[in-house]
Design a protein around this nucleic acid. Structure first.
Lengths: 159, 159
DNA sequence: ATAAAGAGGACTAAAATGGTCCTATATGGA
DNA sequence: TCCATATAGGACCATTTTAGTCCTCTTTAT
């Protein structure tokens, strides 16, 4: 279902919490309590976000985590990539893909375009957006169809 | 990684095969040979696509599968939904979600918007697009940012 | 020194996924 | 009519992925 993993989901919620109070460090236990999830799980998630460069950590007493950039400079793509690795719909979406069906497949290139479009979309959603409590006011119909369809209709007739 | 399942991947390839030769029925064995995948797996995939209303099946000798609509009326969303169920990034993206963290979460509504945007994007990609052998010529940068960002920046300052 | 924190990784349990196979049913043709 | 060829619909198992826990080590403020 193109679903995010639970960990990614947690990550978003946790990042949003931090973003709403960005001026001091937050510990794993504090966040676990606020988000009502078990401490070890929250800890793990925070470590991944930190490794992914989205959080700065401070060890020792009075330690914790702080955003490494402003909420508007952290994107949904960043968060997803930190937990799940590079975003792509198919094996062959990333460079290292070694799909031996490539010749019979015939759709690889097109899926890659679609992946790219989704990535671009997620690049446009920032932590600042996610953290705001009232829903984002995106237009229900994005003008994507008008971008992809005309060229596509013609392209179909190319061969 | 927002990845499609392998089955969905197969489904797309198989649908594309059929779309390229839409005028007669294709059997599971024929498609399996063409796509170089095991017959049982292809059979399973075809059954799902048929149950999902994307293929019409004819039983018995000279049976097989035909597209139930024209390739330009079958979308990537349709294919994904037929194999993986409703498209949504999070549990709470669909109506039946029963996430008990909703109050502490604070990002649910926003993820739902993002899901919706992705769905809209995938609605705009048809089987006709996927089936064409030369890559879709989507602009690398879709103008999504210019749609989502301005309103979002203001929305942030609302509270 | 000590208590409070994160780093890193090993480990287990549970769930999803991929893949196979079997039986039943429908259809066309000899 | 009978047979070969298809799909329909599940049951089933193996594998992988995911979620979650735990332990030990290092860092840091008091």
């Amino acid at each position: 279902m193109l679903k995010l993993s639970k960990l990614t989901d947690y990550a978003a919620v946790i990042m949003a919490q931090i973003a709403r109070d960005p001026d001091h460090a937050h510990t794993a236990s504090e966040l676990a309590a606020r988000v009502k999830l078990p401490h070890p799980t929250v800890g793990k998630t925070l470590k991944m976000l930190s490794k992914g460069g989205l959080l700065e950590s401070r060890r020792g007493s009075h330690g914790g985590y702080v955003l490494s950039r402003s909420p508007s400079d952290i994107t949904a793509s960043d968060i997803i990539a930190a937990i799940e690795g590079p975003i792509g719909m198919t094996e062959c979406s990333h460079a290292d893909g070694d799909c031996e069906l490539l010749d019979t497949c015939g759709v690889a290139g097109n899926w890659q375009r679609v992946s790219q479009a989704i990535r671009t979309l997620l690049d446009g959603v920032t932590l600042a957006h996610l953290a705001q409590s009232s829903p984002l006011k995106l237009p229900v119909q994005l003008p994507i169809q008008s971008v992809t369809l005309p060229s596509a209709g013609e392209a179909l007739r190319e061969h």
